[in-house]
């Protein structure tokens, strides 16, 4: 409990840093005034209209990706699983790129996220249809395979579409696919928040089932889990959570893989702790990464996915090699006798 409190404080601090630091330098006092509406119009616009929604959205997206990453890793019994492994981001990208290439995005800012979400939903439906085709319930090995091949197919579709795109269209499509939070506004914040709260409650309520599923489906059954129901709920909840995040921010990589494993390395794999802890660490990590993305090469912006990998991977490797010696937290998969 104390660890979660600590992580919540870290997340809150990250949010404050993300609001204070930016390409336009504002003193912390002015930022506070602007947030309360007591500063000049420019400062108020920068803080209330740009930085605050962007920081909050980064926190929500980071939380959503980390939470779904941790859930997928348990569901698929695969430490390498990440939020996009089942083709959700590929489907979202097909939707987004289609809307860009066909020029629908001119109709309004809401078109692109909506097209992305539609694409993600279609991807979930397709993958599920393939995985459940065997008839004997949801086989997670087939699910993994179906997700990966569907993702490959979506990639091909995207490159096919882009072959015929104008240079400018091509550029905006590629930027969307790299992921970023520059499109942040309060509408996006509301969309992700509305998805995140029930999804987080649902997944955390299934934390024990995830502990058991990570050991084995039969074990989970014999310890009282309604295995098929749990798998469906986890899959659909985590997938739609990813769909919501991807729709507003593109496919930001590494967060959903690294954050849960960092928690595992530090404090173990009990999902009752791992899920809320991943959520909070994700909510701290992405705003900080995005702050770097905005400021490191100002006035241009580095794609935040580049930062999450450039910063996140070394930090993760450090945790991995400096993990305490001895058997307490031996990593890796071990087969039973």
């Amino acid at each position: 409990m104390r660890r979660l409190l600590l992580l919540a404080l870290v997340a809150a601090a990250a949010l404050v840093v993300a609001v204070i630091v930016g390409p336009v330098s504002l003193a912390p006092g002015r930022v506070l005034d602007a947030a309360l509406g007591d500063a000049g119009a420019t400062a108020t616009t920068i803080v209330r209209g740009i930085r605050l929604p962007r920081a909050v959205l980064a926190a929500l997206v980071g939380a959503a990706l980390s939470l779904s990453g941790a859930s997928f890793q348990a569901l698929l019994r695969n430490p390498l699983a990440e939020p996009y492994i089942l083709g959700v981001s590929g489907g979202a990208a097909v939707g987004a790129v289609t809307s860009i290439v066909l020029g629908w995005t001119a109709a309004g800012g809401w078109v692109l996220p909506l097209a992305a979400f539609a694409g993600a939903t279609a991807a979930i439906a397709v993958v599920l249809r393939i995985a459940a085709a065997g008839g004997m319930g949801l086989d997670t090995r087939v699910l993994l395979l179906a997700g990966v091949v569907a993702g490959a197919f979506f990639n091909a579709v995207i490159f096919f579409l882009l072959t015929f795109a104008e240079a400018e269209t091509f550029r905006s499509a590629v930027f969307w696919m790299m992921g970023g939070l520059s499109g942040a506004d309060w509408d996006a914040v509301v969309v992700v928040a509305v998805g995140l709260v029930p999804a987080a409650l649902l997944l955390m309520g299934l934390a024990r089932s995830l502990n058991l599923l990570a050991v084995g489906e039969e074990t989970a059954l014999f310890l009282g889990t309604r295995v098929e129901l749990a798998k469906w709920v986890v899959y659909l909840t985590a997938s739609f959570l990813v769909a919501a995040a991807v729709s507003v921010s593109g496919a930001i990589g590494f967060v959903g893989l690294i954050v849960p494993h960092a928690i595992r390395l530090l404090w173990g794999s009990d999902h009752r702790f791992l899920l809320p802890a991943s959520l909070l660490l994700g909510a701290a990590f992405l705003p900080l990464a995005d702050t770097l993305a905005r400021t490191a090469a100002a006035p241009s912006e580095i794609p935040v996915g580049v930062i999450t990998a450039l910063v996140g991977v070394p930090v993760f490797v450090l945790l991995l090699v400096r993990r305490p010696p001895g058997p307490r937290r031996g990593m890796g998969r071990t087969e039973g006798p």
């Binding site: 430490p79 024990r208 502990n211 050991v215 998969r333 087969e335």
Partner: peptide, 25 residues
């Protein structure tokens, strides 16, 4: 209570945590 034949532990878990799973039901 069941001791099944095939099981594998995907993520690090302590023996006490593992045994405590028996209390989940």
């Amino acid at each position: 209570g069941v001791v099944p034949q095939n099981e594998s532990v995907t993520f690090p878990v302590s023996v006490r945590e593992f045994v405590a799973m028996g209390r989940y039901p």
